[in-house]
Design a protein around this nucleic acid. Structure first.
Lengths: 333, 333
DNA sequence: TGATATACTGAAAACGATTTATTTTCAGTA
DNA sequence: TACTGAAAATAAATCGTTTTCAGTATATCA
């Protein structure tokens, strides 16, 4: 009494055609006479036949599945990228195998391997810096890879980002323009090239342009979280700065609340600019001035680029920079 | 010069054993002599053999993959559940095929079908009410399904929730206890049984216990979003209530900010209790008093339940209620 | 020592599709 | 009426595993 699964063979038999013909109908191959197509479709409907994607994947070497590596799904920044990725993937009929890699280095490799074993047609990689073992894993097949909101200094993969140097430079310059001489740079791990190479550079360039000496003790390296932001406030304040550029919204919000809970007036006594323009910047009071990154689009464009690579289409630009801007709200004068 | 893929056959030949033996080694089947196992493992290592999960899935009828349907990945509530799901899934070596179903009804069906076509071993369903066509789709196979943070009145699937009636009743009672007689109930679609049947009931019971007449005009049905919260404030205020129970944090935060931007003092002039105790409740000022749901655990327990169902283990309880509480913060007196 | 049980191993048949190489069909032309 | 070539259809190989079943080696016991 087991519910019998209907295979392409059943359809073929019932429609008195070969499996190949059924396969053509299912895949929209034009080399089928309209009346045979009709006949086959009728049988498919009648038997409620559903092609088995696993068998299909084995036979065709295409799974119509892409892997997505995300550091932390509850971080709105990454979740926003994921939304863009998801929408475009759905549009192009790909399914997403999602893997969260928040559990430290070792896990990342294992998780990546399990995804590759599933024969994904492509991979989107977000977040952490691509280290050697990861790179090795990514290199072994010919699976196309696109980094979203992530840079690889070796520039081997496709990638979609904003110009971090310019963005942070503008933000810093704005704080300088409103009279701040001592500005903190509060960021995540400097081991990530986005922070350590690009953003830091933007920060330094802005100072340099304004003839302000770079002071390493104004750089605060912590992690991307609300708690970390609350926690780092004291140290920043003690350093004697009057403003801060923060590179993550959760971090910035924690930082802001740390300041406010310490009765510091924002922006009168202290100015803050954050980096991702997520919903959080609008939720807190005062609302946070922020660099605006097109989060959804970064994800969407990354996925679109990946589809091109998977189709082996000609790619004109595999390293894409999307435009950014600065949205002024109430955490700056 | 194509990079040749190494198959189980290559390993077998190189190790002078049969494919069956290699398969046994790979799958940890104990019926292999230690020295043969050793020999095979050596060859696997040498050739850097990686089993093809697709072929495996076809042959074994198990894909070690579960589908996860999420309404909106950028909503922290669902993202938190997803985190719990992900962690347990990883622990049990399952990969997750994630599908976001925010694009309205029609899409949900298509997406669900594409997931089922991938032969997932199980499915976690979050969010929207399970409607007829969805139910039909879920019924056609014998794929186990668990609802997380979602109830099905027909109680056909596994599910993990809190006791919504009790939780909202407690919250409402607390507002009554602090002197409020006219309390708004601000919620998402009442078509979702969680809102329409359970939460509403809890609200009504609390009123009834306090001998307060239920007034339908105090019930505000909107959607789960920050904007919706901001927008609904005016209407709620006009209704002349002095407190509100809100059933989603983003909604509550928008509502709170709507109130504050209108210069209403919280909690002195208006009290608010929200429902999900996400990070948002701590981020805003004043911090929001909230029903605390064990979000991560709801996801984790749901996934754990699903693993049991997939293993055909005996299930003692397929409808699980996790404990809740109320965290008092500063949006209530 | 022989019989019997038990532990290993291997050959080959699935699994459910796609794809390749052939064959058949069917207008259209000579 | 015979022939041709494109279009349509088929048979069979293939994808990379697991699994079944049968067979062989090894161990155990009397």
């Amino acid at each position: 009494m087991e519910k019998q699964t209907i295979t392409i063979y059943d359809v073929a038999r019932e429609a008195s055609v070969s499996m190949a013909t059924v396969s053509r109908v299912v895949n929209g191959n034009p080399n089928v006479r309209p009346d045979t197509r009709e006949k086959v479709l009728k049988v498919i409907e009648k038997l409620d036949y559903r092609p088995n994607a696993v068998a299909r994947g084995l036979a065709s070497h295409r799974t119509t599945t892409v892997g997505v590596l995300i550091p932390d799904i509850t971080n709105i920044f990454y979740a926003s990228l994921a939304r863009g990725i998801n929408d475009v993937a759905t549009m192009y009929k790909y399914n997403i195998i999602l893997a969260s890699a928040d559990e430290g280095k070792h896990k990342t490799d294992a998780v990546l391997q399990s995804i590759m074993a599933k024969q994904v047609d492509g991979l989107i990689y977000m977040g952490q810096h691509v280290d050697d073992s990861t790179r090795k894993e990514l290199d072994r097949g010919k699976t196309p890879v696109v980094l979203a909101g992530t840079v690889d200094p070796q520039d081997k993969f496709g990638s979609v980002n904003i110009d971090y140097v310019a963005a942070i430079k503008e933000a810093t310059s704005r704080l300088i323009a409103s009279g701040n001489q001592r500005i903190a740079f509060v960021t995540g791990p400097l081991s990530d090239p986005i922070n350590g190479q690009f953003r830091l550079k933007g920060y330094q360039e802005a100072l340099s342009d304004a003839k302000i000496a770079y002071d390493e003790s104004y750089v605060f390296e912590t992690e991307y979280s609300y708690r970390a932001g609350e926690a780092v406030w004291d140290a920043v304040k003690r350093a004697g700065v009057t403003a801060a550029v923060v590179t993550d919204d959760e971090l910035a919000v924690g930082f802001l609340n740390g300041a406010r809970d310490a009765k510091v007036k924002i922006p009168e006594d202290f100015e803050i600019i954050t980096s991702n323009n997520t919903m959080l910047t609008e939720i807190v009071r005062p609302k946070l001035t922020s660099i605006a990154q097109p989060l959804y689009d970064i994800g969407a464009v990354a996925m679109r680029l990946l589809t091109k690579m998977m189709n082996k289409e000609e790619i004109d630009q595999k390293t894409i920079l999307l435009p950014h801007s600065i949205i002024t709200r109430n955490s700056t004068k």
